[in-house]
Design a binder for these strands. Structure first.
Lengths: 338, 338
DNA sequence: TTGTATGCGTTATCAA
DNA sequence: TTGATAACGCATACAA
């Protein structure tokens, strides 16, 4: 702590410029190289990233904004994002806005004041102005799991439409026609895409859309619980359900257990997201696994690329494929009288 | 972007010194005050925190290190921690080390290079050297949910012993004697404390300790699942179980549902931690709620205090009380033959 | 109360 | 290839 280039320079008998050049990988005379190297080691010198940032107008920090730190899907992605950027010696300021738009705005301002070199946003249309401002200030932005109409940004999304199509199709192939969906939040970008996949699968197989089968659980487990309960109270309950996220799945399964319904005998299930408890639930669930590792890595890579000034292929609209993991939660519709 | 104090000074017709003083709340002549204020507004001036940091040797940033970003208990605390520090215009660098000690070390080094003004650590004995180094460099450290033997640091913990005592006692009061515990990781600070509470409750009521009833689920849901399964295979299975964290509870309940055991008729349950699904599970669980808000806030407050140089009452060993939320998961031991 | 000048730890420019 | 020096944006000691 506290030993500076000046100290190193003196110790090595060279000038600060030489030390700086050594640090930044410029070549210098063999002999000086050694002297500087030794001095650095002996003194335990560490460069001061703050001062460096002041000079280069680089903070070596990126800002990440997620809705909630307790949303495991986001934090899983952030984990791999961090791994990606730390390789290039970037660090991360992680903020959540708790679904409060005013707070979202403040957080983005905050990051800008902090001179972050780039921003990863788990949010979309809600804060166009902020995004615009960031981009005007030449701070690259990558948007995950969202989209911003009217603004061009790099985006990383899974192929929601395709994944939902395949999930729904899977149920159809097992003989289901009464297929319900427990979707996220109405109007939300992701939810709309997933709904679209569901609908187009049904259309493709000439199955009539039943509005009663389309429910919104706001991505929460309590929502999933309620939706499932409601679905079973339909005049003609579905024989299968497609659930579009993890938390709602938890809630739905809780409801199912309470009602003593057996999966897949009474009800078939396919859902989104793999998490810890998936491996523990029996019968095992069939689900769409979003490659969170890949998402985080992609977002990080694109952002770093932009930070370096490489604007090729802007704006990128990454669509990442999902894989379906086969469990035992789907069977032909059999017993439908609970 | 890019407007500096120099610009403001010129615009206001004063010197940079005056602007700086205005910014930092020193008093100046009414007239100058107004001029500076206006200039700042007109130019949209924002101070450069990086430059400020270089000068003051303050980064206005604290480092937070948690085991995993996907551990909801930690992230809930971090959320309230962030709320606390942001009030004083501090920001947070959040890192996880994925239970990898080498990574933990690197993360702490990283934060130190980043000149964080303080560190909150969700880790303990594993990295004494790092903690010592931080403190030698006068970077205050607050440890949450842990303890570091041989080093004095401020700590924030819940009263694990007391909470576990009360939880166990609750089961005893309902008439149970065959009480099992599904504990975290053997040897771990928290786990040891919770075990101690469990044991001393049994001792207090003259109930013999049965080693077979003490299981370790490593804080994971798969662990909780397995432990519960094993417990029920004991020659004389417990009539009640105390589970010491959220993930293990999830796993245990999954097992219980699979086995078609009824709570509390066949088995009584008390556990740690409130989270989303608690409100959804039926019968409702009786649980110990750790005041995550309070923990985060306390840690933040203590750290800020230390950063300001106030070392009074060092080292603080905050013990935060928990509250027990009454559900319907406890009944007298009745049917014990599953 | 204010202005000026210096320094925080780096990097970049310019001569040498 | 190197050294000296001027920035980067801000805070502060000192002088006025």
């Amino acid at each position: 702590m506290g030993t500076t280039m000046k100290d190193v320079a003196r110790h090595a008998g060279v000038s600060v410029g030489t030390v700086s050049r050594y640090i930044n990988g410029y070549r210098l005379k063999e002999i000086n190289m050694k002297k500087v190297k030794m001095a650095i080691e002996e003194l335990g010198f560490k460069e001061n990233i703050i001062a460096k940032g002041l000079k280069n107008k680089r903070s070596m920090t990126i800002g990440v904004v997620i809705a909630s730190l307790t949303d495991i899907f986001s934090t899983t992605i952030v984990t791999s994002l961090e791994k990606t950027i730390e390789k290039e010696n970037y660090s991360m300021m992680l903020c959540d806005y708790n679904c409060n738009l005013d707070r979202l705005h403040r957080k983005i301002m905050f990051l800008q004041d902090r001179m972050v070199d780039g921003v990863v946003l788990f949010a979309g249309n809600e804060n166009k102005e902020d995004v615009r401002r960031l981009m005007n200030n030449e701070i690259p932005v990558v948007v995950i799991d969202s989209n911003i109409e009217g603004i061009e940004t790099d985006r990383v999304n899974v192929d929601n439409v395709g994944a939902s199509f395949r999930a729904t199709e899977k149920l159809i192939h097992s003989g289901h026609e009464r297929i319900a969906v427990i979707n996220g939040t109405k109007g939300d970008f992701i939810a709309e895409e997933r709904l679209q996949g569901y609908i187009s699968a049904l259309n493709t197989y000439d199955i009539t859309i039943n509005d009663e089968y389309i429910r919104y659980g706001n991505y929460s487990s309590i929502g999933g619980y309620n939706c499932l309960m409601e679905l079973l109270e339909c005049k003609s309950p579905p024989t299968s359900v497609f659930i579009t996220n993890y938390y709602m799945t938890i809630g739905a399964i809780t409801a199912i257990n309470e009602l003593d319904i057996k999966i897949p005998r009474h009800l078939s299930l396919i859902c989104f997201d793999r998490f810890e408890i998936m491996d523990v639930i029996k019968p095992s669930l069939t689900f769409i696994e979003q490659p969170t590792d890949r998402i985080g890595e992609m977002a990080g890579r694109i952002l770093l690329k932009r930070i370096k000034g490489d604007m090729s292929q802007f704006p990128m609209d990454m669509r990442i494929n999902t894989r379906m993991v086969m469990g035992k939660s789907i069977a032909p519709p059999g017993v439908t009288d609970h």
